[in-house]
C-alpha cells in the first residue's frame, strides 16, 4: 500500500516518474512503431495502419469494458466465450429471421439488438453472482467462461455456424466498409473509447469505480451502492463484448467453438499494459487503447520481418506485458521511502 502512494518527502522526485507513468504506454507505442518502420517501411503505409487498427478494434472495445471492471476491483474472464456465444446466437437468429423478413436491414438490426441484449444479460449475471453470492469474480467468470464456450459448441453441434449468404452481403460493410476513409470498426473503437473516457473520468459512476476498487469499505461508508455499481461494470463489459461481436460477425460470417479463444487474456493484457492497476482503484482508458493497439502491432511487426518467427508472437507479447508492468511498478518503488 505504501509503495502505491508517493511519499511526501520525495514529491520532487516522484513528479518525474509520475509523468513517466502516464505517458509510459504512449512512449512504448511510439518506440514500437519506430521499430516497425525500421524493420519495414511498409509498416507506416496507410493500408497497413488501417488494417492493424481495424484488427485491434475487437480486443480494444472489449478491453475498454474490462478497464471498468478491473478499476472497480473485479475481473471478467468470460469475455472471449461470451463473444463466441453471442456470435453464435446472433447467426442462428438472423438465419431464422431471413425466412420472415428476408435478408434485409430488419434482420440485421434485430440480430444487433439481440446481441446487445444478450451482452447486457450475460454481464448482469456475472455481476449479480459475484456481488450477491459473494463469490470471487475470478471464480464466477471462470465458470461462465466454460458455460458460454460449451454452449456455442453445442449450438454449432461441434462444427461451425455460418451466416446466410444473403445477409452476409448486406452486413459485410460493418467490418469492411469505411466512413470518410476510416474503417467502421476503428470508428466504433474510437467512439467507445471517448464515451468510456468520459464515463470513467467525468461521471459519478467512474468516480465510484475508483473508490470501490481502492477500498470497498470506504465506498460502503460513503453511501455508495457498491453491489449495484459493480454489477453495472459487468453489464458495461457485456455491452462492449456485444459491440465487438457485432463488428466481428461480418468479418468471417461464422462462429464456432474456437471463436474468441484467449480474447479475455488479451483484453486483460491490454488493460494492464495501459497502466490500470490489476487489483483495482486506478484505471486509464487511453492507456487501454494504446495497450490494445500495441498487442496487435507486435503481431503486425513480426509479420513484416523474417528475423523472428511469426509463431513467437505470444512470446514477444508476453515479454512486453511483463516489462510494461515492471516499469510501472519500478517507478512506484523509487518513490517509496
Amino acid at each position: 500500500m505504501n509503495s502505491v502512494v508517493p511519499n511526501n518527502k520525495s514529491v520532487a522526485r516522484s513528479q518525474a516518474s509520475f509523468d513517466l507513468k502516464t505517458w509510459g504506454p504512449f512512449i512504448a507505442l511510439m518506440a514500437l512503431a519506430l521499430l516497425g518502420v525500421l524493420i519495414n517501411p511498409a509498416f507506416l503505409g496507410l493500408d497497413n495502419l488501417s488494417n492493424m487498427l481495424t484488427r485491434s478494434a475487437f480486443i480494444g472495445i472489449i478491453a475498454i469494458g474490462a478497464t471498468f471492471v478491473i478499476t472497480a476491483g473485479g475481473l471478467d474472464l468470460s469475455v472471449g466465450s461470451m463473444a463466441a456465444f453471442i456470435a453464435g446466437v446472433m447467426i442462428i437468429l438472423m438465419n431464422s429471421l431471413v425466412e420472415q423478413f428476408g435478408p434485409g436491414l430488419t434482420t440485421i438490426l434485430l440480430g444487433i439488438g439481440a446481441s446487445l441484449l444478450l451482452g447486457l444479460c450475460a454481464g448482469f449475471i456475472n455481476g449479480m453472482v459475484t456481488t450477491k453470492g459473494k463469490i470471487e469474480a475470478f471464480i464466477v467468470t471462470l465458470g461462465t467462461m466454460g458455460i458460454y464456450r460449451s454452449l456455442v459448441t453445442y449450438l454449432a453441434d461441434g462444427g461451425t455456424l455460418s451466416l446466410d449468404w444473403g445477409v452476409r452481403d448486406i452486413y459485410r460493410p460493418v467490418y469492411y466498409g469505411s466512413l470518410v476513409g476510416i474503417p467502421i470498426p476503428v470508428l466504433v473503437f474510437l467512439l467507445v473509447a471517448v464515451v468510456g473516457y468520459i464515463l470513467l473520468n467525468h461521471t459519478r459512476f467512474g468516480r465510484y469505480c475508483f473508490a470501490i476498487g481502492s477500498n470497498e469499505k470506504v465506498a460502503e461508508y460513503s453511501a455508495i451502492h457498491v453491489d449495484r455499481i459493480k454489477t453495472m461494470t459487468y453489464m458495461l463489459q457485456g455491452v462492449c463484448v456485444a459491440l465487438a461481436t457485432i463488428i466481428y460477425v461480418p468479418r468471417l460470417g461464422s462462429a464456432s467453438g474456437a471463436t474468441g479463444v484467449l480474447w479475455e487474456l488479451e483484453a486483460i493484457a491490454a488493460v494492464i499494459i495501459g497502466g490500470t492497476v490489476l487489483k483495482g482503484g486506478h484505471g486509464r482508458i487511453w492507456g487501454t487503447v494504446v495497450g490494445a493497439i500495441m498487442l496487435t502491432m507486435i503481431g503486425n511487426i513480426l509479420n513484416l520481418t523474417d528475423a523472428i518467427s511469426n509463431y513467437l508472437n505470444g512470446t514477444v507479447q508476453g515479454i512486453i506485458i511483463i516489462v510494461a508492468v515492471y516499469l510501472q511498478r519500478a517507478s512506484w518503488r523509487k518513490s517509496a521511502p
Partner: peptide, 18 residues
C-alpha cells in the same frame, strides 16, 4: 483509514465522495 477515506485518492474526490 479503513472505512473513512480512500487513502490513495486525492483530497477533493475524498471530500465530495459522500
Amino acid at each position: 483509514k479503513g472505512k473513512g477515506l480512500v487513502l490513495n485518492m486525492g483530497l477533493r474526490p475524498n471530500l465530495t465522495l459522500l
